[in-house]
Simulated scan of single mutants.
Amino acid sequence: MDVERLERPVSEIMTSPARTVDPEMAVTDAARILWHEGIGALIVETDEVAGIVTESDVVRGVCASHDPEQLRVRELMTDLVITVGPEETIRDASVRMQDNDIKKLPVVDDTGTLVGVVTTTDIAESIAPSFDDVLAEFAE
């Protein structure tokens, strides 16, 4: 693996803008957004990043026999949000995810403003050699 790939800034691989929702949104509406947009998490935002709600959170809430029409995002979200800065490296983000057993990191700038989100999939795709790179190795 080309270790230089790990030293690139998160800003090069993050998804921006990140999809945000209000904490008072019904869980059914959040689930529809996740499904229709093909994403795994929503950043809960008020004036700042207030939390994150994932597909797993939604499933857990429904499995606990909560009525998803009545249940609000704020009731399921994780409010202790681990973040990463856009200038931090892909390695930094990877370590932070591993240390905290999480798969998604909101990306916030120095002022605390949400600028994107980075996932384990983004990281894997950024560090894995491309098919062209693999073919070039065999051609040498």
Rank of each mutant, 00 (worst) to 15 (best):
E48M: 10
C63S: 15
L42S: 00
E24M: 14
M25R: 12
P17M: 06
E48I: 10
E75F: 04
V21Q: 05
E37C: 05
V21W: 02
T46L: 07
R74H: 13
E4T: 08
M77W: 06
V73T: 11
L71N: 02
T28G: 01
D67Q: 09
G38N: 11
L34A: 01
E4G: 14
E24C: 05
E48T: 15
L6I: 05
E75Y: 01
L6R: 08
D22G: 02
R19W: 14
L34T: 00
S16M: 04
R60C: 11
R5T: 04
E69D: 12
V49E: 01
I33R: 09
L6E: 08
A18F: 08
S11N: 11
L34Q: 10
V49F: 01
E48A: 15
A30I: 00
Q70A: 10
L34C: 01
A41C: 13
D47Y: 01
L42V: 12
P68V: 09
Q70W: 05
P68L: 08
A26G: 07
S11G: 02
A64W: 02
E75I: 04
V27H: 02
M77N: 05
V59Y: 06
P23A: 04
T54P: 12
E4R: 12
T54W: 03
V21Y: 09
M77Y: 11
A26P: 13
T54D: 04
R32K: 12
E7T: 13
V59C: 00
S65W: 09
T46I: 03
V62R: 07
M14V: 02
A30W: 12
T54A: 08
E48L: 06
D22C: 03
T28N: 11
L76C: 01
A50C: 02
I33N: 01
R32G: 05
I52D: 07
M25I: 08
E48H: 15
E37T: 02
E7D: 15
L76V: 01
I33V: 13
M25G: 00
T54K: 09
V27E: 06
A26Q: 13
T28I: 05
T20V: 13
A31K: 14
E37K: 09
R60A: 15
G40A: 10
T20H: 11
S11M: 14
D67K: 06
P23M: 08
D47I: 00
R5I: 05
R32M: 10
D67H: 08
